[in-house]
């Protein structure tokens, strides 16, 4: 109400210039986002259809679909979540509850921030050696393979490649290798998010539990972890959505494949949505750009759902931790 209209001295004019520059920058950022979303919507909506979602790839743009990459994304991200979430939480628990303020924590912390800075394509090289080739185990021979026949309660060797419980070593570039690769990529993110969640738990809660004679694990398992879990889950969802968008490390481990079936077990060949988008975008023909845009719309829809889920989890499960 009593804000002054200051005289236009050079100092106040300078002040306005700064304000305008800042607001303009924010506006440009929003414009960039808007033009990105709009151009994709304009380009892609025409190709979206039920048939697009339920068909396999094709040499002709008109009949191509994204069933295989959709299914591949689901498989790979499920494996990634299954590995990265418990490992991320476990590491965070160790760093925050066991190794707090120790030199070890300092070293590991630095190492984690280093890992977060490693380009994802480099993880592809690591995964190629460790998961796909298993350090050259049986290279040049037929892989060691087996599958579990649950109805007869026995292990078949060599395994049956059509069975759900088919494993071979080395893994090759199947969904298991893909999922583990993405787990490596998102693990640093998951650890950092879980650590922040744990740090947000007030010290008083821990002290209360300790004063009652809880052991360290009991404090962590019964007090800290439950209190931090909603925030951790938000971090987990965001980590997995990062995995959903990764293409580079998967290109390194398997190259791009025109996959004509959905995965049946952990060793199945796969492709994922970002790889498919990359493949179609890189072609010169306009009609492939249109289906690439349609695939992007699907990808963004999935990601937005994930984001909404994260917000929902954050808001509905987060109890106040301090009065």
């Amino acid at each position: 109400m009593t804000r002054p209209e200051a005289p236009l001295t050079s100092r106040t004019r300078m002040s306005q210039v700064v304000l305008i520059a800042c607001a303009l920058a924010a506006f440009i950022a929003v414009t960039a986002l808007a033009s990105l979303l709009l151009s994709i919507a304009v380009e892609g909506t025409g190709s979206l259809s039920w048939k697009f979602l339920t068909s396999f790839a094709s040499r002709k743009a008109a009949s191509a679909g994204i069933l295989a990459p959709l299914a591949g994304s689901v498989w790979v991200c499920a494996i990634c979540a299954f590995v990265a979430i418990p490992m991320g939480i476990g590491t965070a628990l160790y760093l925050e509850e066991y190794a707090k303020k120790s030199r070890l924590q300092g070293i590991i912390q630095l190492n984690i921030s280093n890992l977060a800075g490693v380009p994802s394509i480099v993880y592809g090289l690591l995964a190629l050696a460790v998961f796909v080739r298993c350090f050259g185990f049986r290279s040049g021979e037929t892989p060691l393979s087996f599958s579990v026949d649950w109805s007869a309660m026995r292990i078949l060797s060599p395994g049956d490649p059509d069975s759900l419980w088919f494993i071979q070593i080395p893994f090759g570039s199947g969904v298991l290798a893909g999922g583990l690769t993405l787990a490596l990529v998102v693990l640093p993110i998951m650890i950092t998010a879980s650590q922040e969640a744990l740090r947000a738990v007030p010290k008083s809660l821990r002290q209360a539990a300790e004063a009652l004679g809880s052991t360290r694990w009991q404090v962590a398992w019964r007090v800290t972890l439950p209190a931090a879990l909603p925030t951790m889950m938000t971090g987990a969802i965001l980590s997995i959505s990062r995995a959903l968008g990764e293409a580079a490390p998967l290109l390194v481990i398997g190259g791009f494949l025109m996959v004509m079936q959905t995965p049946t077990n952990l060793m199945s060949d796969f492709t994922v949505l970002p790889m498919q988008i990359y493949n179609w975008s890189g072609r010169p023909q306009e009609e492939f750009h249109r289906i690439a845009a349609a695939a992007i719309i699907v990808q963004l829809a999935v990601l937005l759902t994930f984001n909404a889920l994260a917000i929902f989890v954050r808001q509905s499960f987060q109890k106040p931790l301090q009065s």
Partner: peptide
């Protein structure tokens, strides 16, 4: 809005660069 921008897969930016 910026969070959305941060969540977009990089391949989408590549597409945006080529087509826009």
């Amino acid at each position: 809005l910026l969070e959305i921008l941060a969540g977009i897969p990089t391949v989408v930016y590549g597409f945006f660069a080529l087509t826009f």
